[in-house]
Design a protein around this nucleic acid. Structure first.
Lengths: 223, 223
DNA sequence: TGTACATCAGTGAACGCGCGTTCACTGATGTAC
DNA sequence: TGTACATCAGTGAACGCGCGTTCACTGATGTAC
């Protein structure tokens, strides 16, 4: 058992990790100087050795939450189907076109599953920040989406004419549905899984992605 | 000029109106007991003569904001085209089917225009409330949407098969786009009008509403 | 039609709380010689 | 290899603020007789 040392070691990283966990359990409202300090067994003023103020610390935690979301999206895409390598040898398994659709749907589903499983972290990710993050999101959920849309066009799964508007259309729908789920604004009798699947189906129709072979049986409902 | 009387007259209604105006200018964060009281030239404790606590007052203001949104939607629908009267005499003007599509699009557009014109009021409408409103929304934005979707099916503009999911699909998209607009999360170079129109077009495709005659020229951009 | 009195709608001062932040300080660490 | 000393990373008490809310009160209103 390690004696609590006077010098913490890596307080900055520890405070961010504590903030992430605090936000996961209580949302942005729980990001308080005293609470963060207490979580690391440190006095409140020690926080100011590593961050100019709470707003900057909170902005970093918000960024971490967005990055966790983006990682979940990327992982789901990879799990759904391999990334199409256009000049590689022909592989077994789904065609590149089907794979691209599966990946796209998995990304949207991961976004909604994240909102459902971690609603307070999701809130933290998109909270109104009063300070800028220290660096850009890495990975960025927006970039994951754009990449997937490019693949859809490259494989012929989506008309190229849809590409300019596609990011807005996809993000609006999925982010809006996530908001419904997180704030529990859905009308009575509609289950989260219904909202999720209806939204994803709607996005595919809105983007004129027609690839029925990519849809069923591949995404059984764990709920 | 009326002498400020000791008895206010109708302080409850006046506080709600002041709250609405305060929220319009500063969002939910400006709904403070002292600020509300000052707006009516009254001491803070007078508020407690009419509301059990701030949470209940704020919940009422939030409801008023939602009702303002719903009224804007209804007004836009009426302005776009008359409500189809199925058993009435044949009128001049667009067919009932075209009218229904125009009304539907006008409703969505009004939602997004409201979010754009009054972002802080929009935030207030959907803020996390810690008390229930005293009564149901009247009118209710949700009901306006459902009514319009029923009309689309009744006039043959939308396949009946789309009806069960349509409320979720439409609300997710439009509410999500409104969130993008309000929080200014859109990527650089994309204008609010583009977000609005892309989203509405996407919803029509997602719901398989195909009525090109209802679309152009009827909705010039005021921006 | 005047008057006592219950009731209603305000006042104003204060309480208590939790917050972010500051400041003089002290303990631990590392480095030059 | 030991020692003075600058530097770094914490402590702990306190400040000041703004908040929702309470409480004893007072001025205005309306009603019974």
């Amino acid at each position: 058992m390690a004696e609590p040392a006077y010098h913490h070691g890596n307080l900055r990283a520890a405070l961010l990790a504590a903030g992430f966990e605090l936000a996961r359990r209580g949302g942005p409202a729980r990001l308080l100087v005293r609470e963060l300090a207490a979580a690391e067994g440190v006095s409140p003023s020690a926080v100011y050795r590593h961050f100019p103020d709470l707003a900057h610390l909170a902005a970093e935690v918000s960024r971490l939450a967005r990055e966790a979301l983006a990682r979940a999206m990327r992982a789901a895409a990879t799990a759904a189907a391999p990334r199409p390598t256009l000049d590689g040898p022909e592989r077994a398994g789904p065609t590149p076109r089907i794979a691209a659709v599966r990946r796209f749907r998995a990304i949207g589903r991961a976004y909604l599953d994240f909102a459902l499983a971690e609603p307070r972290l999701f809130d933290t990710a998109f909270m109104a920040a009063s300070a800028p993050p220290s660096c850009a999101d890495e990975p960025s959920a927006w970039d994951v989406l754009l990449e997937s849309l490019d693949d859809l066009v490259a494989t012929g799964a989506m008309p190229a004419a849809r590409l300019p508007d596609a990011p807005i259309v996809a993000w609006s729908s999925v982010h809006g549905a996530a908001g419904l789920l997180v704030r529990q604004l859905a009308p009575d009798g509609v289950t989260p899984a219904q909202i999720r699947d209806s939204t994803l189906d709607g996005v595919l129709r809105a983007l004129e992605i027609r690839e029925p072979a990519a849809l069923p049986a591949a995404t059984p409902d764990a709920r």
